[in-house]
Nucleic acid binder design. Structure first.
Lengths: 224, 224
DNA sequence: TTTAAAATGATAGTAATACTATTATTATTT
DNA sequence: AAATAATAATAGTATTACTATCATTTTAAA
């Protein structure tokens, strides 16, 4: 069973809703692919226009600039992740099981339950790992934050924090642990692939050691 | 007592050693200030040349591009941090105390023991928090890594990992915990200032809660 | 079904960025 | 004092990051 999914995005993320037109969806689709292939620094709207078979000017009608597009797709990812989290923890009783789901979601080890025809979530996950932080590591954070652009990330963080509190209602740092878990999952995956000496996982494809590390970190931290 | 310090940098980081000339040191000095002020994205060599009172072309004789300059200064920071760590843990017996030093160093709560006239380490710390990750989050990681550009970061990470193993020789993830601690310290400081809802620290200036969080995370993780 | 409105494509253009090259001038070293 | 090296001044190129205009196509409303 898979569910059709349409995520309603904050209108401040775009000039024209990319989800409402064929061209818009193509911008997202090829944008994800191109950013993944050449990296955010080398990515330009001109190159994207070539891929899409459209023009630079047309893409600028959808997004103010490439940074907004990056914020759009990473934000989309956080929203989707929260949906997945809700879905997969729905029938679980024990917070311990829910945390296992959180960790498996962050390491992309959970079967995707939602269909979105034009978004390749595995590639998108790769972008979030490599480029995701660049969405908020800018001089515009404060302004973007006021426009609520990071709300989905905060919502996800808060939801995870609440699960932590289920397990240990006395825990003093649920949000910090949640954001640390999210960031650490991604960063350690990046290190594992590109700077393995910063980890203890070796360069094998296995995600098992990473999952164990994240579980260790989380549960040790929560059991006071 | 303060010690004069000169850090020998990997020659692959620069075209001409900025530490060998007045102009070179000015490039580092004003580079740090300017990146901090306007952010790495808006930072250009032309603007830097204005600040320094020199020309774009002259700066290009020192650094291939602005990304190399960023890598240079962040790498300098890691080397300096390792020196500080060695210095401050020198006479300590118990690994517990050493870890406390590590955490205080990462949150900039330790008195600096080294003088470097042209580098403002407090501003540099700010850059490492906001822009530091951009040094390795690029499509050039692998190549840069082969040129050993990230060695100081790995060395620091390894040194911290060894301290962890002193406390718990059985611990399976010393390097991952070390890199997580470093990254988390910086990221949580960033969140605290710009996206406080991702933390539990509030927006007050106090670093005490952050230090407690990092201590909690580290010691709980290590005591098996 | 026609008409109006909206979206797109094609094209052009501007200011800034990210460089490279050349030559004259100023320091430094021998 | 001559040779060498570093810098300043200047110019120039390709690319980036946009904005503007207008003709054409697509979509929606009357």
């Amino acid at each position: 069973m898979e569910l059709q999914l349409q995520i309603k995005m904050n209108p401040k993320l775009y000039l024209r809703d990319p989800d409402s037109t064929e061209l818009g969806r193509n911008i997202i689709k090829h944008g994800i692919k191109l950013i993944h292939d050449i990296g955010f620094e080398d990515f330009t709207f001109k190159k994207l226009a070539m891929e899409v078979g459209s023009t630079e000017a047309s893409i600028y009608r959808y997004f103010e600039n490439k940074h907004r597009l990056l914020t759009y797709i990473t934000t989309w990812f956080w929203t989707w992740l929260e949906y997945q989290l809700i879905f997969h923890t729905n029938n679980l009783k024990h917070p311990r099981e829910k945390i296992d789901i959180v960790i498996k979601l962050l390491t992309f080890e959970v079967q995707d339950k939602f269909i979105v025809e034009h978004i390749d979530k595995s590639i998108l996950h790769g972008i979030v790992i490599c480029e995701g932080d660049k969405a908020y590591l800018t001089k515009n954070v404060t302004e973007d934050n006021k426009s609520m652009l990071f709300k989905p990330y905060k919502d996800l963080c808060h939801r995870i924090a609440e699960i932590f509190l289920e397990l240990n209602p006395e825990f003093a740092f649920p949000h910090s642990l949640a954001s640390t878990l999210i960031e650490t999952a991604h960063r350690q995956m990046y290190f594992k692939e590109h700077l393995p000496r910063l980890t203890d996982f070796g360069k094998s494809k296995a995600v098992r050691p990473l999952i164990e590390f994240l579980q260790h970190l989380t549960f040790k931290s929560l059991n006071n």
